[in-house]
């Protein structure tokens, strides 16, 4: 799978996260989180793990986290990645 276009998934509501993706030569993940200090590492790990499972090696991901728990983060990554991979 390869990111072909810009896409978004999720929301800025509490317990959710908004993820934007766009094509890029390398894999870049930028995270802003209300719980960055405490859970920043786990958030990044969950995102990287999900992308690895989906076979994604490139793309620019911007994650705005509003306290999403693990399953929600992973679900939003899956949705935005599939949307970004769809043909225009």
């Amino acid at each position: 799978m390869k990111i072909m276009k810009e896409a978004m998934a999720g929301s800025l509501e509490s317990s959710d996260c908004l993820i934007m993706v766009k094509p890029s030569e390398k894999l870049e993940i930028e995270i802003e989180s209300i719980v960055q200090k405490r859970y920043g590492k786990q958030i990044r790990a969950a995102i990287e793990e999900t992308l690895d499972e989906m076979g994604i090696t490139s793309g620019y991901y911007k994650v705005q986290d509003k306290g999403a728990i693990d399953y929600c983060l992973r679900a939003r990554v899956q949705t935005v990645t599939r949307r970004g991979c769809e043909e225009q």
């Binding site: 998934a9 399953y71 929600c72 679900a75 939003r76």
Partner: peptide
């Protein structure tokens, strides 16, 4: 699509 992904992750928990 997003709701299905979310539910898929949530129901296991």
């Amino acid at each position: 699509d997003a709701a299905r992904d979310l539910l898929d992750g949530a129901l296991g928990q």
